[in-house]
Amino acid sequence: MSTQSPSLPPLSLTERRKRATQLEIAHAAAELFTAQGPDGTTAEAIAGRAGVALRTFYRYFRTKQDAVGPLLAVGGERWRALLAASEPGATLPKALRGAIAEALAAPDETAADGLRQARGLLRAAVDDPALRAVWYRVNQESEEKLRPVVAELAGGDARPLEVRLAAAAATDAIRIALETWAESDADVTGPGSPAELAVRCLAELMGGMRVLTRED
């Protein structure tokens, strides 16, 4: 079992700059959507808040709602890395619970602010189908990227269907937890927090999956 994140080629300077610009635009869009809603926000306003030209905005994003995609995807990237780096010998259920709890924890104000920003976006998405579509697309892409990590942790005897179900259960546990938390006034930690809800959702969703019910 690998305990390291998948090895990826280093990004070029151009690619790093591109990603940094995309995240700056994504943060600007999230701030504006949270403050005044998608209907009250234009692509021009997002570009202005991010300090880029409107043509730069449209070079990276087709619509104003698409702009938050990179920001929403960051959480998935972090949690997949945490799962891939699970301690040697950990069973898949234990690894999933640990990675989910750590990914959604709020150990400092920066992490807490990130969760609050996600809450603002999810609340804004309630009345904006295009923004919800971005959220669902990011979750679908995250689930697909999660499958090889789950397969590695599950071991060679895990069937493809089991791996797919496990990846779907883990992804949906986080999605449902964040959506439920966004509808509430619960804090970023403690009862009703994203981490607490996600671990509970995972336990409910993993049900009778053989690959998810094998314990130490």
Rank of each mutant, 00 (worst) to 15 (best):
R97T: 12
R55G: 12
L197D: 07
R17S: 12
R17L: 13
V138M: 08
L153I: 11
A105F: 00
A26L: 10
P10V: 06
P70F: 05
L11N: 10
A85V: 06
L23W: 04
A45C: 05
P160N: 11
A29Y: 04
T213K: 06
L212Y: 01
A84R: 04
E77K: 10
T91G: 01
P6C: 00
E15K: 08
T34Y: 00
A133T: 04
E44M: 11
V68G: 03
D157R: 11
P70T: 02
G89K: 07
A111T: 04
A47P: 06
L115I: 02
M209G: 04
A103K: 04
L11C: 08
T21K: 11
S12H: 04
G156N: 13
R119G: 00
E204D: 05
T189N: 09
T56R: 04
T180C: 07
E215L: 15
G120C: 10
A45G: 03
S5C: 10
P129Y: 07
G89N: 09
A177I: 06
L54Y: 12
R214A: 12
A170W: 01
E162F: 04
D66T: 01
R159C: 08
A133F: 01
G114R: 09
S142V: 11
A90L: 14
D157H: 11
T110I: 13
R59F: 14
P88F: 13
M209I: 13
A170N: 02
D127G: 15
E152H: 10
C201T: 05
R80Y: 01
A182L: 00
E196W: 12
R132M: 14
P9A: 07
E162A: 14
A47G: 07
E15S: 10
R175P: 00
W181A: 01
T91E: 02
L202Y: 00
L82R: 10
R164F: 08
P9F: 02
H27T: 09
A95Y: 03
L153E: 00
L197H: 09
Q117G: 00
M1E: 12
D66R: 02
A158Y: 02
L205S: 01
D127N: 14
D66E: 08
S12W: 01
P107F: 02
G89M: 10
E204W: 01
A118Y: 09
G48T: 09
S12V: 05
T110S: 12
